[in-house]
C-alpha cells in the first residue's frame, strides 16, 4: 500500500468536500467526483445518498464503472424529485467548470459572446438553481489559466461576490471546495476570495500560481492534501475504482 498516486489524493480531497454532509443527496458529476463521493460514503459519511444519475438511489455503494457490481436500490428520484431536493437544500453537488473566477463564479454555458458564442458548452443546466439553493463544489481535472480566469464569459453557477449583492436571498449559497489535479481550494477568507487550502504532494505553490489566471489567497503555510489511510486506499483500489478510471483522468506526473 505504498506509492499513493495523484488521483488517489484527488479522490480523498473530493471525499473530504462531503465530510459532515450527513443524510443528503450528493451529486458528483464526472469521473473522479464519482470515485471520491463513493469513498466518503464507504468511510466517514455513510449517511450520504447517491443516485444512479437517472432515477434511482443506491442503497449500497457499487464500484465506479465496475461491470456486474451489485446494485441495491433504496429510493426513487425522477428529475422532478431531484428538483424538489435541490430547492429543499438537502443536496451537495460537485460540478465541473469550464471557467471559474476568484469568487467562484462558474461558466458551463458558452465561451465568447452569449448571442453568438465562439464555443457553445453544456448550457446553464442546473447550475443557477444548484448554487443558490445548496452547497456546491467544483472539480477541475486540468488546473490551468484557461479554467481559472479573472472573469468568466457567462455566469452559470453563482459566486460569492454576486451572492453577497443578493443579501438574504442568497442565504443558502455556499461554495465548499474546488478540487483540482494540483490542489484544493476554498473560499474561507474574509471577502470569500479563493484560497489555496492544500497542495497535492509533489505540487508547488508556484505551479498553482502559474496555472491560475487571478491572484489567489495563499497562506504562509500551505499544508499537503491528506493522504488516504490504508483502509481508504484499499477501498479505492479494490472496491471503488479497480479499473483505474481515476488514473485515466489524472495521471501521476513523472
Amino acid at each position: 500500500m505504498t506509492d499513493i498516486q495523484r488521483d488517489e489524493y484527488c479522490a480523498v480531497a473530493i471525499a473530504e468536500a462531503f465530510r459532515g454532509d450527513g443524510e443528503i443527496l450528493i451529486s458528483p458529476i464526472g469521473n473522479l467526483p464519482a470515485i471520491g463521493a463513493r469513498l466518503a460514503r464507504l468511510s466517514f459519511e455513510p449517511g450520504l445518498m447517491l443516485s444512479d444519475g437517472v432515477s434511482k438511489l443506491f442503497g449500497n455503494t457499487p464500484g465506479w464503472g465496475v461491470k456486474g457490481a451489485e446494485k441495491i436500490i433504496e429510493g426513487y428520484v425522477p428529475y422532478r424529485t431531484i428538483f424538489d431536493i435541490v430547492w429543499s437544500g438537502k443536496r451537495h453537488v460537485m460540478m465541473g467548470a469550464t471557467q471559474i473566477d476568484k469568487y467562484g463564479n462558474q461558466n458551463i454555458a458558452c465561451i465568447g459572446d452569449f448571442k453568438q458564442p465562439k464555443s457553445q458548452l453544456l448550457g446553464m443546466r442546473g447550475a443557477p438553481g444548484n448554487t443558490i439553493s445548496h452547497p456546491t463544489s467544483y472539480w477541475v481535472s486540468k488546473h490551468s489559466t484557461r479554467v481559472f480566469v479573472e472573469k468568466v464569459d457567462v455566469v452559470s453557477g453563482v459566486g460569492y461576490d454576486r451572492a453577497r449583492e443578493l443579501g438574504s436571498a442568497a442565504k443558502y449559497h455556499e461554495i465548499r471546495r474546488v478540487v483540482t489535479n494540483l490542489c484544493v481550494l476554498d473560499f474561507e477568507t474574509p471577502d470569500n476570495r479563493m484560497r489555496l487550502r492544500s497542495l497535492h504532494p509533489g505540487v508547488t505553490v508556484d505551479q498553482v500560481v502559474e496555472n491560475t489566471g487571478f491572484e489567489l489567497v495563499i497562506p504562509d503555510d500551505v499544508p499537503e492534501t491528506r493522504a488516504p489511510n490504508a483502509e481508504e486506499l484499499r477501498l479505492l483500489r479494490e472496491d471503488i475504482d479497480p479499473n483505474g478510471n481515476g488514473k485515466k483522468e489524472v495521471p501521476t506526473e513523472a
Binding site: 454555458a109 452569449f114 443557477p128 438553481g129 443578493l166
Partner: peptide, 13 residues
C-alpha cells in the same frame, strides 16, 4: 417564485 436564477446570467440574458 423561485430562487433559481438569482445572481446568474440567466437574468442578464
Amino acid at each position: 417564485p423561485t430562487r433559481a436564477g438569482l445572481g446568474s446570467d440567466v437574468l442578464k440574458y
